[in-house]
Amino acid sequence: MAVLRPQDQLPGLNTATILLVGTEDALLQQLADSMLKEDCASDLKVHLAQSLPLPSNVTRPRIDLIVFVVNLHSKYSLQNVEESLRHVDAAFFLGKVGFLATGAGRDSHCSVHRNTVLRLAQAYRSPLLFCDLEVDSFRVSMAQRLVRMLQVCAGHVPGVSALNLLSLMGSSENPSAEGL
């Protein structure tokens, strides 16, 4: 299937699946490990992919949340993400997509400006999170947050839907503080 659809299968019982898309293999692997270490009432499954579309010969469970990881130090990872975005069904963007930008701490190494990723996230009306995945403690806390988002997107939190969470996280325009 070329395009990823949110409701293409029935969900697994008590399972929540997240798909991490990004070019930074090592970082994604570490993030996946941290997520699996979190204790959580649901069964977590983490899938990693370099880019979309995903190969169609593999059976995989229904994907509840896609997180696109952009490394601010490499323009290639941004391009990769922009390409992959074209293979995602529009229905996914109702709260089941998030962007994660890593490497913002090392300002001098950044070849992609933060505002570029910000604008991308705003264009797709999805939340943008910042985290330096190389640092242990930041990664663990980001894993915690992703797990909670995943639980909501998989419907395991009664009364809150993914779209609901999206509107809570707000589409704040986030003007840059330099204008102050």
Binding site: V3, L85, R86, V88, D89, A90, A91, F93
Partner: peptide
């Protein structure tokens, strides 16, 4: 059916979709 988005038309169509869903 499915529908994909490009960056230019994403915002408007997503907004409309989100409104309908909400």
């Amino acid at each position: 059916g499915t529908e994909t988005l490009t960056e230019s038309n994403a915002q408007l169509s997503l907004l409309i979709m989100q409104m309908k869903c909400l």
